[in-house]
């Protein structure tokens, strides 16, 4: 079966996110003063084959742990969809 994994990688809570802070300040300068926080991250769509949905999830989890995220500073979340 073909799957699409949709992965979001963000910096862990508590890890400093200079991009997020700078973008938040820029939004404030553009009068979006209601913005209290911006977190930056990465979004991936991974197309791959697996035998079942649970196997697809396991595979995607390994990809997140080994490559897509850096477990030292980042956390990830994902969804698996069938194509």
């Amino acid at each position: 079966m073909n799957f699409i994994g949709k992965v979001v990688v963000l910096l862990k809570e508590g890890v400093f996110d200079p991009q997020g802070v700078t973008i938040k300040n820029a939004l404030h300068n553009l009068s979006f003063s209601q913005v209290s926080r911006v977190r930056t991250g990465k979004y991936f769509e991974v197309e791959f084959e697996a035998d079942s949905e649970s196997e697809a999830e396991n595979q995607l989890k390994s990809m997140c742990q080994e490559l897509l995220s850096n477990p030292v500073i980042e956390e990830y979340s994902f969804q698996v969809e069938t194509e």
Binding site: L11, K12, V15, P18
Partner: peptide, 12 residues
């Protein structure tokens, strides 16, 4: 032993 890693902010 992985304390939280510092993130560099070269712009600042």
């Amino acid at each position: 032993k992985r304390p939280s890693v510092q993130i560099g902010d070269p712009f600042t």
